[in-house]
Design a protein around this nucleic acid. Sequence first.
DNA 1: ATTATTTATGCGAACGTTCGCATAAAGTAG
DNA 2: CTACTTTATGCGAACGTTCGCATAAATAAT
Lengths: 340, 340
Amino acid sequence: MSVTIKDIAAELGISATTVSRSLKDDVRITKEVRERVKKLARKMGYRPNLMAKSLVSNRTETIGFLVDNLSWSFFSELAECVQNAAEKHGYSVFIYSSQKNAERERAGVESFLSRGIDGLLIFATEAKENEDFYGELAEMSIPVAYFNHFDPMNVNCVTTDDYDGARKAMKHLKELGHRKVGYIGSREDSSFKRQRLAAYLDAVADYGWDIVPEWVALQEDDPLYGYRAAKEWLSSGGDKPSAIFAQNDMLAFGVCRAVAELGLRVPQDVSVIGYDDLDMCMSLHPPLTTVKIPLKQLAESAIRFLVERIGTEKSEDDVRLKTTFSPNLVIRQSTARYEG
Amino acid sequence: MSVTIKDIAAELGISATTVSRSLKDDVRITKEVRERVKKLARKMGYRPNLMAKSLVSNRTETIGFLVDNLSWSFFSELAECVQNAAEKHGYSVFIYSSQKNAERERAGVESFLSRGIDGLLIFATEAKENEDFYGELAEMSIPVAYFNHFDPMNVNCVTTDDYDGARKAMKHLKELGHRKVGYIGSREDSSFKRQRLAAYLDAVADYGWDIVPEWVALQEDDPLYGYRAAKEWLSSGGDKPSAIFAQNDMLAFGVCRAVAELGLRVPQDVSVIGYDDLDMCMSLHPPLTTVKIPLKQLAESAIRFLVERIGTEKSEDDVRLKTTFSPNLVIRQSTARYEG
DNA sequence: ATTATTTATGCGAACGTTCGCATAAAGTAG
DNA sequence: CTACTTTATGCGAACGTTCGCATAAATAAT
């Protein structure tokens, strides 16, 4: 099968220990021997067996990353950032997609744990039934960090201030003169949704915008619900919103589609704001005004935390991580002054 | 630290062997004992150590998946399919993003090999400098499959017939009366690009379309090059293409953006066809006509192959895998009859 | 020359499993 | 009641590393 340290040792007539030490450039071994070993190892195609190494060291140099659904751009962009950040510290990333399923979420974590990952990074479903599970996880010796806003829970979080981000979007609309603003989001309860919706509702109240209950559309999780909700609003006979704030960019794209299909234009007839700032925002028409989630910073911050915690004994006076970035509004071409 | 089989054995006053066997419901152990062991294991929070298991069994129940760039929708959608397919057979997937870098590609495979993955699934960069590397990989005892069209090489491939797919797109344009068709693709040389471009060039020749050398735009890999190329063509004073075939959907979105920015409409003024059929095609305006890559079938076929090969001794008369799916054109609303 | 110190290497256990083989206990046949 | 089979469990090695401790050889100090 594959070449082991023993094969090299046998070939050279030395002990496995010496080979092991030579390969990691241990000064106790003469330079001469070290070179010979490394040369032969290369020649024989030696590849260290990480499982054997892990068994004794209790380290895998791997971080488990649990996401909602890898096929969604937001998560895959984040995953790429996580992988890059981890790599800088010499860690690999094992990604698992829970598909927003609470049971799979637990199964994924179990799998990670069995694999002996050194740290855990979670974008949680926030399913009610998993709350105890998140709690148990926090008690474990392995470091865990969440990208969620788990305020009341005793867990480590790295997030953006979504209330602030959404508020910036609302302020932008106010400054453009909008007073008829709709909100499209997911029905599912999550910390993200709560913050973004709260900022919208507060803005409606604070700025004295028109209050139209139907202009808050919370639908099932479906890539097309932004499209459908916007189409309904805009094709109705009555009063129509002049601006629409979508809970994420994909929803906003759907809104843009609805606007275009009705022969209207973004932003002249309807302003649209998204949330996330996906890479493709720049490739679409019109380039979307959106709240930028700083994926790179989030990933690096979370990974740095995990890497620092890994290997340090867990103690009572460990500070809880609570890093919050303030997101920026990226103004592009999907928002314009309201001439009403 | 964590609970081991020995802890359970000690607690129950039996041997580790019996515990191990009880946990896998070995009939040699009395039902009574098995139950007691399983109950205690649950109570103690026992989690099997997959590294230890792998060391002896030489199996990790893991498949390594190497992609170009996980943050691109095409790859993340494919990755999700791969994970689902693998899971059906009890395998996990370790994803590594090479970022289209030949060196990282090799490093990724090395990392997989060190981790002892059971099978390897590769979306290769096709870098010239890695050709030897792909060859060596094929010689190894571990099963490997590619999503690339590696025709001349002695490797296992699961692909779609991209010539056929692109040809279907071209036929559609011809039937709509187009004669002025542009092609936008990546400059980088790859089997995918070659097939799609060849189908376009053949169509131009076979159908007697206008031959305008500038209408083949091969640019650097940049999410915005579809936009830029289309903008240049359409804003020039001279003859303009009535239809544009983009090598992938993201490029096609950029084309649509360029059309819209110039005050023109898709499909009334310019027809646009993409390739891939990303999920978001339905969320954008206009819903894109595109060639659908059957990701689910590709993933399932590749995984099935790997799973079957895993554990069977490699032999000379192993048939080489060469599965090719014929992709379908999905006609949506970005293509229309040419009234020229 | 003897002892102490340094330097270079090796032995053997350990990590948490699995698995072949042995053993002990119980059951069946003569 | 001996011999033979079946059933239930345990022993110990193995997987490929690493690491503490020992040993042997070489050098330095007395």
